[in-house]
C-alpha cells in the first residue's frame, strides 16, 4: 500500500485499478481536485506504564522538496494531552487554532465551581471530538487532510493513545504510527508492546529509547523525513515537550552497499 500522504483517501489501485492519466491531459485547471500541498510525514506514539511517548519530526515538505525545516507538529492541549499531526500542514494549523479556541472555552466553563476540580477535556474526550470533526468534514466532501495521534491519559488516569484520520476512522493500540511509520516503525514498536498487557512492563526510558530508534529508522528510509524532531512524554504530572531533539548515533555504514546512497564508486 502507498503510504505517502498524497495517496491517502484516494481510490486504491489494487481495488479500483490504476488512475487513468489521460484525464490529466487537459488545459483547464481541475477544479474539484483536493490534495495536500505542504505535508508532514509520520507521527509515532507508544504507551508505557505511566503514560505515553509521542514523536514527530520538524519537517514540512512541499512535494519532494524539504520546504520548511522547523515546523513543530506536536501540540499540547490543556497541559494534559498531546496531539501529533501528519498530512497537510495548513489543515494542521487550522486544527491548531481550533483547539486553542476550544481550550479557552473549556477553561472558562470548567473550573469556576470547585477550585481543585478537573472536568476539562481529557485525551479520550479530545480524540472523540477531533474524530467527529474529521468525520464531519469528510462527510461534507471537504476533508481535513490529516492523520492524527492523540496521546494522554483517560478519565481513570490510564495511558491513552488513539489515532484518527481524514476519513474519520479511529483506532487505539499500545503503539501507533501514521504514514510511513505504520510500515517502518510500527513493527519495531510492536516488538516492545505487542498487546495492552505488556504496557505495564515498559518503563519510560524503554519507551523513549524505542521511539528514538524508530525516528532514526524513519530518517534512514523515509525520504520526506528530517533528523530534527519533537518528542513529548505525557504522564499524570503533565506534558514534557521537547521540540529540538536531534537524531544521535546515526550509522550510515549500511549505505555503502546500497546503490543510490552517497557517492557511488561503481
Amino acid at each position: 500500500m502507498d503510504h505517502r500522504p498524497q495517496a491517502w483517501g484516494r481510490p486504491r489501485d489494487d481495488v479500483y485499478g490504476a488512475y487513468d492519466a489521460s484525464y490529466m491531459q487537459t488545459n483547464q485547471p481541475n477544479q474539484h481536485t483536493q490534495s495536500p500541498i505542504v505535508t508532514g510525514t509520520s507521527v509515532l506514539g507508544m504507551k508505557f506504564k505511566d503514560g505515553v511517548v509521542i514523536a514527530a519530526d520538524n519537517l514540512a515538505s512541499y512535494g519532494s522538496l524539504a520546504r520548511f525545516t522547523d515546523v513543530k507538529r506536536l501540540r499540547t492541549f490543556a497541559e494534559s494531552s498531546v496531539v501529533g499531526f501528519g498530512g497537510d500542514v495548513s489543515d494542521m494549523q487550522y486544527l491548531d487554532r481550533h483547539l486553542t479556541e476550544l481550550a479557552i472555552d473549556e477553561a472558562y466553563t470548567s473550573t469556576t465551581t470547585t477550585p481543585n476540580a478537573q472536568p476539562t477535556l481529557n485525551a479520550r474526550n479530545l480524540h472523540k471530538y477531533l474524530s467527529k470533526l474529521l468525520y464531519h468534514r469528510r462527510s461534507k466532501f471537504d476533508p481535513l487532510w490529516n492523520s492524527l495521534l492523540v496521546a494522554g491519559l483517560d478519565e481513570a488516569g490510564a495511558p491513552f493513545l488513539a489515532a484518527a484520520d481524514l476519513l474519520g476512522t479511529t483506532f487505539t493500540s499500545p503503539s501507533l504510527a501514521t504514514g510511513f511509520g505504520s510500515m517502518l516503525a510500527q513493527p519495531i514498536m510492536r516488538g516492545l508492546v505487542p498487546d495492552e498487557a505488556s504496557v505495564a512492563q515498559v518503563t519510560r526510558e524503554q519507551a523513549i529509547n524505542c521511539v528514538r530508534e524508530c525516528m532514526k529508522v524513519l530518517f534512514y528510509r523515509d525520504a520526506r523525513s528530517l533528523d530534527s524532531y519533537s518528542l513529548a512524554v505525557v504522564t499524570k504530572d503533565g506534558v514534557e515537550l521537547s521540540e529540538n531533539e536531534k537524531l544521535e548515533n546515526q550509522s550510515w555504514a549500511f549505505a555503502d552497499r546500497i546503490k543510490g546512497y552517497g557517492t557511488q564508486t561503481v
Binding site: T109, S110, P119, L121, N122, K128, Y129, K132, E155
Partner: peptide
C-alpha cells in the same frame, strides 16, 4: 456524550 464521550458537566 456523542461529541466528547463524557458526562455533561452540571454547571454547563
Amino acid at each position: 456524550r456523542l461529541t466528547y464521550d463524557r458526562a455533561m458537566p452540571l454547571e454547563t
